[in-house]
Design a protein around this nucleic acid. Structure first.
Lengths: 221, 221
DNA sequence: CGTTTATCTAGAACAAGTTTCACTAACGCA
DNA sequence: TGCGTTAGTGAAACTTGTTCTAGATAAACG
């Protein structure tokens, strides 16, 4: 009777305040094996379609069909197309994080290390521009109903950057702000590249420029 | 026989390369008085609806109706909802630029001046959060077909920032990159605020953080 | 096991962006 | 001024995201 969703949030942009959803979401509410498999099939289909033709090519009916699941079921797992694509991004980011972890940046200085890491990530995205397009567009188009998921993506990105910095101690508030700014720049630069308004060279320069903030916010020693 | 649009571009995301649209677009191909009036009515209706309920509330049929124009005509003026909203943003930005020009920042240092200006702009947007939502979402969601228009918005923003800096001479390449990064941060921070993932205080800090790049890239004197 | 309840499926229905068409009004110009 | 061309109108059609419903399956649980 309850119509509880597998995925935690609702849709539609409203500007209500607060709401403080204090439910103690168990991170990934227990799924049966078949359900986990379904979820993976869906994400896989989503990524595959996205790789082909970007955001527009990820059509919910197609995703459902390609992953052998009814449309209603797809919506039970991911309550909107944006949710689906953001989840896809989460998935991809996790991979990337692992990959990057295996080959940590070679540079010495934190700023250079971060720039190097981001450019590496950037080159990875270049290999699947359509997929990148779909994910990033979904990410920035996401409204409040997707906040928790977008936040997860943001935390993952932050983790990647902090990893790259290779700090000895916990980051200061200032450094965290610098990291946020780097993240902003990263997303936005990606978008300008994806929409053909900036060259790769320009993205590189912007990344390097923003990474200078890291030196600037390094605690005095 | 020709079905030339009033607004210069087509829709739909394709990933064709280059294309270098070298057409010498006459900036705003001559419109008759009635046409100019229609255009204004449309933009006005768009902004009004956006102020009410953000991106979702701007429905093409409604815009058409509210501006006393047939749906097909609306599409002749603005080939998609995103085009319409980006044009709306252009319009609003122009106002803002003029307003800001009238009261230039009071701070001394370029970095502080820019931060002050952006926070002023930010407070203006706060007064119409729904409108801001609609415009910014459209802007970042825009695909290649909207590039020229998005570019115009970007140039306007750049102009505002450069104005705020109050330079004596032309900006260096380094400074331009810093400005681009500031712009990235500005958009992205706006989005995180609009989707409720960052507080106003946080946006302020991030803006101030990124503005430090201005000092960093100031030419040695 | 049998029953109860939550999930899944198939497919129709709905909403809003976009396109199309047949027609009329306005414009530009010889 | 008359006429060919472009722009605008109204309404229907089409597309794709989203919702809903009824019935079939699978899970949970006594």
């Amino acid at each position: 009777m309850h119509d509880v969703r597998l995925s935690p949030t609702r849709r539609r942009n409203t500007f209500e305040v607060g709401q403080m959803t204090a439910e103690v979401k168990p991170a990934a509410l227990q799924l049966t094996e078949r359900q986990e498999a379904r979820r993976r099939r869906i994400l896989h289909a989503s990524a595959r379609l996205a790789s082909r033709g970007g955001f527009d090519a990820v059509q919910m009916r197609e995703v459902a069909e390609n992953s052998g699941v009814a449309l209603g079921t797809l919506y039970r797992y991911f309550p909107s197309k944006v949710h689906l694509l953001v989840a896809t991004m989460q998935d991809q980011l996790q991979h990337m994080h692992e990959t990057l972890r295996k080959r940590p940046p070679t540079e010495e200085e934190p700023a250079a290390r971060v720039a190097q890491t981001l450019m590496r990530a950037f080159r990875a995205l270049q290999r699947e521009p359509h997929l990148a397009d779909a994910m990033v567009r979904a990410l920035t188009f996401a409204d409040r109903s997707v906040s928790p998921e977008v936040d997860t993506v943001s935390r993952l990105t932050t983790a990647i950057i902090l990893d790259a910095m290779g700090l000895d101690e916990a980051p200061t508030a200032e450094q965290l702000s610098a990291v946020r700014v780097i993240e902003h720049t990263w997303h936005s630069a990606l978008i300008t590249w994806l929409s053909g308004r900036a060259s790769i060279a320009q993205v590189k320069i912007d990344i390097e420029t923003v990474c200078r903030l890291i030196d600037l916010t390094a605690p005095a020693r």
